[in-house]
Design a protein around this nucleic acid. Structure first.
Lengths: 340, 340
DNA sequence: TATTAGCACTCATATTTAACGAGTGCTAAT
DNA sequence: ATTAGCACTCGTTAAATATGAGTGCTAATA
């Protein structure tokens, strides 16, 4: 167990290191107003903290830096649970409102805002349309051989796909196909749509099948194309300002990783958390993010579960401020009304 | 005017430097099979070439490197006009075909292909929908207060926008509005659509105006949102392998610049060229691309003018190969048929 | 018993110095 | 006109040295 003084020292080391990115020495600490002990005393406590694995030294004659365990302790015990600052949240909400009431734009704006607030790179993932369900299918002919299939989801999202027929299709066949699809498929999740259409085709009577099979398979094939969840990166440049990313060895893996949209999306979708969660250094298990910490949270927009937002910075990130800002942003998003 | 030998030497210097990224010395050159002169002779010619501004030395005791003027001379006089290699073009065409027949995906694929072929970063810009013209407007109600506006262009592209009414609108008013818009606006370029709708509203009779103004203004406001031309970056990572981008000073401006999608789009759209064009070093006028050269070309897909594709590498890029590959790709694209 | 002053020791970093060698420009010989 | 020869330049590398921040330990102090 840690003594009060050790706690004070640990906290001071981390706070200082977060600010300066430099190993912290005992003399520097003893000069702080909140540490009234001599450097020798502090050295003794530091040795203990090091034995406990909370801090470490890069080399003999350097000061100490927090270890991952140290950061973990700091985040779990020394970062107060988020207190929503009403004034600040209101201001954020205001800024979000200004931009637009379209969800896509709102999310981008939120990511940018969070990045500006913290100076870290952010990633925002929109709703995964695979999870939404079909509210309605419709068809609009363009010319003899082409038309647009419209898919409307329960969340009010609309997708369109142009389809082309092999040969001319009678209007009433089209009409009937659409009626059929609406009758039987409303409520199906978008992700399952393809499979379900296949099932419906199988169920058709022989007579019907000749008529509708072609058309339905056509729709099936276009519907099957996954619409990837919308992903937005905020403040990618911010990484260039971080002292730990001033060499190619550290910068390159990060940039290469962050640019892989697909992998990024999967990663965000795989995160199990609902509320704000902090992953420190190697905890996240991603080699390219070894020296990074991530604050993630699911967010809701207009009351509905919507997506995931993440903040990525060096392990030496300002956890207190980061958690605070993340809380403010998701609260502001929660309060924001969408029109639809 | 250059003597034959000087020409030979200039070419050798540039070829060598392009490959090694190291200043080329007279002794190295004299050992080449195609240069039979002594190093002293070569030195004399090098001095002349330097006087003419075609090559320069980083410092006294280094070899020579090409100057921008040298590269320009090389590109203009020493890079043979592209000869389409039928076999190779066929192979590229094949690979393009495989991926998809959708233009969006084809363009991505082309950018990736070109990047893999050359090991440089590529940018492909899709068609600018602002230039296409309206072929048809349609409307599909979703519920009492919402509906989807469909916009079809002459090129067969479809866009949709969800609109929301302040209050319930009678179906026949909607129908009539759409008829009106179709009657009067078909053929208008998408970019002008917003202005043109405004003009039409102004022309309405007082009686009509009450009915349609709201609806038309609603459509106007949603139509006004610019759909940016689709932009695709291929092989962004490639830059990390270039020796001239191994320091943050050079890498950072490049990456920051390339990540600004909007600026990039404008830049590509502003390029006046139709056929393959090479811009060397500072010629492009972009500070962040001081040390880069760019090979750009407009391309056609399925015979129609479509967009612009660019290849960005260090000034010391393999112009011959780059121009060659660019030629192959745009030829392959030209031959690729789209279904629509 | 807990704290602090004092001091020898460690080790990354910065500075200096010297050696190296690739490449040049010039001159004189071919 | 070409080439061999040679003194000279200057960036790069390596070794030698100095600097100083910070530590751990011991002994003195409250």
């Amino acid at each position: 167990m840690l003594t009060d003084r050790q706690l004070l020292i640990l906290r001071a080391i981390i706070d200082d290191y977060i600010q300066t990115a430099q190993p912290v020495g005992s003399r520097t600490l003893s000069k702080r107003d909140d540490l009234t002990f001599s450097s020798a005393t502090i050295r003794n406590d530091m040795a203990d903290l090091e034995d406990m694995g909370l801090i470490e030294k890069p080399h003999t004659s350097a000061g100490r830096i927090p270890s991952e365990i140290g950061y973990r302790y700091y985040v779990d015990h020394l970062v107060e649970k988020q207190i929503i600052d009403e004034r600040e949240t209101g201001r954020l909400e205001e800024r979000l409102k200004q931009s637009s009431k379209e969800s896509e734009i709102l999310i981008r704006q939120a990511a940018d805002l969070l990045s500006d607030l913290t100076n870290y790179t952010t990633v925002a993932l929109g709703p995964n349309s695979q999870m939404e369900t079909l509210a309605r299918v419709d068809f609009m002919p363009l010319d003899e051989r082409r038309g647009v299939v419209l898919i409307v989801t329960d969340q009010g999202h609309v997708e369109h796909r142009t389809v082309m027929f092999e040969s001319r299709v009678a209007p009433d066949v089209i009409e009937e196909t659409i009626r059929l699809l609406n009758d039987r498929l409303v409520g199906t999740s978008i992700g399952q749509l393809k499979v379900r259409i296949g099932e419906e085709v199988a169920k058709l009577q022989l007579a019907q099948r000749q008529q509708y099979e072609n058309m339905m398979q056509l729709i099936q094939s276009t519907v099957g194309i996954q619409t990837p969840s919308s992903l937005y990166l905020g403040g990618k440049k911010k990484i260039f300002n971080q002292p730990e990313f001033q060499t190619l060895d550290t910068l390159r893996p990060f940039l290469e990783w962050i640019d892989e949209q697909e992998r990024l999306t999967h990663w965000l979708e795989s995160l199990p958390n609902r509320e704000i969660y902090v992953s420190i250094g190697s905890e996240n298990g991603i080699v390219a993010l070894q020296n990074c910490s991530v604050i993630t949270s699911d967010y809701t927009l207009d009351g509905k579960t919507f997506g995931t937002i993440a903040m990525i910075g060096p392990t030496r990130m300002d956890y207190r401020h980061g958690v605070q800002m993340m809380g403010q942003i998701i609260e502001a998003l929660r309060r924001t009304k969408l029109d639809k």
